[in-house]
Design a protein around this nucleic acid. Sequence first.
DNA 1: ATCTACATACCGACTGGTTGGTATGTTGTC
DNA 2: GACAACATACCAACCAGTCGGTATGTAGAT
Lengths: 235, 235
Amino acid sequence: MTTNHRPSTPSRRAPRGSAAAARTVPSAGGGAPAGGRAARGSARDKLIAAAHQTVRRKGYAATTVDEICTVAGVTKGAFFHHFASKDALAVAAAEGWTERARPMFELPPHTKLEDPLDRLLGHIDFRLAMLEGPVEDFTCFVGTMVQEAYATSPAIRTACEASITAYCEALAPDIEAAIARHGISHGVGAMSLARHIQAVLQGAFIMAKTTDDPAIARDSVTHLKRYILMLFGRG
Amino acid sequence: MTTNHRPSTPSRRAPRGSAAAARTVPSAGGGAPAGGRAARGSARDKLIAAAHQTVRRKGYAATTVDEICTVAGVTKGAFFHHFASKDALAVAAAEGWTERARPMFELPPHTKLEDPLDRLLGHIDFRLAMLEGPVEDFTCFVGTMVQEAYATSPAIRTACEASITAYCEALAPDIEAAIARHGISHGVGAMSLARHIQAVLQGAFIMAKTTDDPAIARDSVTHLKRYILMLFGRG
DNA sequence: ATCTACATACCGACTGGTTGGTATGTTGTC
DNA sequence: GACAACATACCAACCAGTCGGTATGTAGAT
């Protein structure tokens, strides 16, 4: 598709609050001054959500700007109105991914448990439960993208690093508190363990992609959970 | 580069046995009838080695056929003489990757240790020692490629799966023997642990790419080694 | 031994479709 | 009416794959 005709979305201006799947991404500005419906200025968020979806399936380089536009239901004019280049969208989408992951540390029930170790184990169980259905629905956008861009685009690599670091830093306080309360073997550090958790998840995603089977990924995360239990003397 | 001029390799017909880094890939035919030097029929192997090198740096989709040819020091004519398509090269390169990894299980000193657990731990240490220098020199070709191709090319996905499965199956016998001799906690299975080892390595590669720092990867593999030690009651 | 017939290995200009990006027009809003 | 938020038309570069041709071997007949 070279030119980009109006995409065949049945009703372009959705009634209100549609595109629910990707609504977690905020306006990325500051405080919305007033007004209820965003309506017209929604192309940016839709493009970012479309990038998340498409890149996770096909990778970054294989994903074309036209395709992102089609999935988002907008035209190329809208794309280059909001983003200076494909790479600029990638950077914005990496930032958007961080926002999209944030509720994971606040919403689920386990985040209210009293013992920080229980919160940590609850998080692992939560990630474990996510590993179901189509592979492209639970894999990591930034993990996928950084593989292709780490050596060719410093801006994208840095944006992906920021997203992954944010995840680890969101995880670290509970680990820190769990260490303080329960102690840990071998003097393992909180950030070190947080990064290892992230690494196992990323590796589990690759194994799931390779075998086209989420069960392989779940098995690996189960090993991870066992390791954490053993570190805290609950083996 | 659209047209493909003769690449600027100083002497095209290498004296003998150059390209040593990728020599592990055999002729892929059957029994070589006679003859000593391969010389003329070396384009295929050089293209596969070039694919390993380039794809690990830039990813599969971003790597062009022209670029692979340039790195290999051959022309496009040679490329399409040996491979029907870019995807066909990818499949062959995945098979070549398995061959290239095979010596890892035979050559290093630790493979001759008497205790299978020592051999396993020696392998982890070996992988740990590999995590140095430029990221693109120690990362996994099939792990990188499958991320981009798992949903779009069944042939490539299957070839990558075969390579990773071969790695796990090469690792499993020692794990099995170690379990038989030393016992293991929680009834962990040999293939399950082998796949987890592979997952942690793949995850460590992604973390190294993200941070552009092999130390992060080493830290994760150190966690893995500690987990294995604990499983075998040597925590 | 040499010549014919054929096969394999390789070269490089060319092509048609694709892709990121641009230039310009249109519509809604303050 | 001015400005933001789009839409449409278009382009130059790029890229996988093609194709006619050449160089090098090799097997069989004479």
